[in-house]
Write a protein that binds this DNA or RNA. Structure first.
Lengths: 146, 146
DNA sequence: GGGCTTTCCATCCCTTTTCATATATCTTGA
DNA sequence: TCAAGATATATGAAAAGGGATGGAAAGCCC
């Protein structure tokens, strides 16, 4: 078999690209870039994350994230707040505007996921999610530290 | 459960990123960028691909690929050849230098894949590959007929 | 407490990517 | 054959991304 058809990292990259491309294209309709969408989604999970944490979660480097946040803060989507406990850290929070902006996108994302999983059986869905968690390393297979 | 922990496209992107990051870092040792490595790997599968085809396989846009190929051609890794049948097309071929350059990287990539799969059981490996094939669209074309 | 190291974010600068578009070639249909 | 449309690649300006670095703050250890 050809290398590119069986090489796991390439298959993963390809799967990720195909699964996300249509949704990423539709982000323009909400006037959001992919990093902006990721930041808003992360913050709607956990409001108040550091720049480095957000960069890691959005799969980017920290300097890139700083610039993304500059734009988003200028647009009024997020707000930087320093903390008393550690004055190096800058925690990023959603503004009401950011929260309102992300709400319909989250709904669309869930719908997109449903449409992806619709043609699959319930077992297959569970298998896919487990496989990905295995690769990511957040393996929660039941037995801790086997 | 938090959105980012169960959203399939994000899990895929994260898995892809984690799986490839160490190998991508090691590419610097061979003086190759990620797109360059992808081009060489694709061409070692099929020598003689168009610019647009290569861009799609390397998950980039066509203008980006044109510039990647400019650099690689200047480095003597690939060669552009026009075809008689369709003079718009430019087929990209590996040079001997390109072929020699990619050989050890292909071997390292296979080793990397092995190390990724080593800690997993045979059942889990099969699960992951099956999940990825499902997502990439073995279901999208159906029977591969003319 | 004073230095040394580490961590966290911002800034600078260069490379790469991308969007929009241009140019060349092929295809189609009257 | 010729004009329109479609397809393949190239180009140029603008934006994004990332490495290197700087400054500030915290942790550490004697």
């Amino acid at each position: 078999m050809a290398f590119t058809e069986s090489y796991l990292p390439y298959l993963l990259a390809r799967a990720s690209h195909e699964v996300s491309s249509t949704f990423h294209a539709s982000l323009k309709g909400w006037d959001l870039s992919v990093p902006e969408w990721r930041v808003l989604a992360c913050l709607s999970d956990i409001d108040g994350l550091g720049v480095g944490q957000l960069a890691a979660m959005a799969l980017m480097k920290q300097p890139s994230m700083t610039k993304v946040l500059d734009r988003m803060e200028a647009d009024g989507l997020v707000r930087r707040r320093s903390t008393r406990e550690d004055r190096r850290r800058v925690l990023i929070h959603l503004t009401p505007k950011g929260r309102a902006r992300v709400r319909p996108v989250l709904a669309a994302a869930r719908a997109h996921q449903d449409s992806l999983l619709a043609p699959l059986g319930g077992e297959e869905r569970a298998l896919i999610l487990r496989a990905l968690r295995l690769l990511i390393g957040e393996d929660e297979g039941g037995a801790p530290e086997a």
